[in-house]
């Protein structure tokens, strides 16, 4: 009895280490770089292929490849439309603009070799969805997820985590990726971990997942209580927005004022140009009321049709950052 128990414990640990091991595998098949979705097929990642016509599986170490095509929901599983380019001995790539994908949030795709052999992804890859073909065979497909944020070295939000040098894997998760637990792997740096994202303006909540443990950002004092009685860190992403006022060249001073600076009457002095006045402000995501003060006279933006009353019955111009 005791032996059986030991075995169970042993098996239990094997299971845990396998699952930990499987988590080391990052998202495969694609990555998002800047404004582009880059599909990548590395022949070394695949050992099994399924014949399109016969549904027979073949195992090959080396495959005589004439072409590789990305086939998925985004191109109605076309076998020939999205042909990839060979970049080196093992790797094929195809870059697509991110705008081609905005209609949906999650897409399924696979790679097809020589227009007739489906490359079967490894089950341990994180972004895998089980699927069944018309004959009931088990298949796996890659899952491509689109979020309002994506990793980009030159992005507008840099996330840093100090320490945890012994951690195997750190994932950044938050409202910008619907708390996805796999997709935004952080990169190891000298002092800890780091990842830069390109995010739409707005307020977001986030956490780090350090080898499975959810941890808030200790460097960031801005946080809110979450439904699990813990805390989520909060980040505000701003965007530059340019206000223009045409004409009024004989005015001495034009002030830009609004909800973004608590209607300050001196904070923002607009800059005179050859045909009017301009100022670029960093604004948070959301709606902002504003007005111009031209030599002491408050006025709405004549070139903006969007106006609203405020609580006191004043009419303000309105802009939106999203």
């Amino acid at each position: 009895m005791n032996k059986v128990f030991k075995h169970i414990i042993y098996l239990f640990f094997i299971a845990i280490s396998i699952s930990v091991y499987s988590q080391d595998n990052a998202v495969k098949g694609y990555k998002i770089v800047g404004d582009e979705v880059v599909f990548t097929f590395d022949i070394r990642d695949y050992t099994k292929y399924t014949n399109e016509k016969t549904s027979r599986r073949i195992r090959v170490e080396s495959f005589d490849i004439t072409n590789v095509v990305v086939s998925g929901e985004f191109n109605s599983w076309s076998r020939d439309k999205w042909q990839m380019n060979k970049v080196d001995e093992y790797t094929y790539q195809l870059k697509k603009n991110i705008d081609d994908f905005t209609d949906e949030f999650s897409w399924e795709f696979k790679f097809i070799i020589n227009n007739s052999y489906w490359a079967e992804p490894n089950k341990k890859v994180n972004n895998i969805t089980p699927a069944v073909d018309d004959y009931g065979y088990n298949l796996n497909v890659f899952n491509l997820k689109m979020f309002t944020a994506h990793p980009n070295e030159n992005g507008n939000a840099c996330f840093k985590l100090d320490g945890y040098k012994d951690a195997k894997r750190v994932v950044l998760t938050g409202t910008f990726n619907r708390w996805d637990e796999d997709i935004f792997n952080m990169n190891k740096t000298e002092n800890g971990w780091e990842l830069t994202l390109q995010v739409n303006p707005g307020q977001y909540q986030y956490k780090f997942i350090i080898d499975g443990d959810w941890v808030e950002d200790m460097r960031n004092p801005d946080k809110v209580e979450n439904e699990y009685h813990g805390f989520n860190s909060v980040i505000n992403i701003t965007e530059p927005f340019t206000f223009n006022l045409e004409g009024h060249l004989d005015a001495e001073k034009v002030i830009l004022t609004g909800t973004f600076n608590d209607w300050s009457e001196e904070d923002i002095k607009m800059i005179k140009t050859s045909n009017g006045w301009t100022y670029t402000a960093e604004l948070l995501g959301g709606k902002h009321h504003y007005k111009f003060i031209i030599d002491g006279n408050w006025t709405t933006d004549p070139d903006n049709s969007v106006k609203e009353y405020d609580y006191d019955g004043n009419i303000n111009s309105v802009c939106i950052i999203k």
Partner: peptide, 9 residues
Amino acid sequence: VNYPIKINE
């Protein structure tokens, strides 16, 4: 109500 023509961009 019409969407505004993009301004200030």
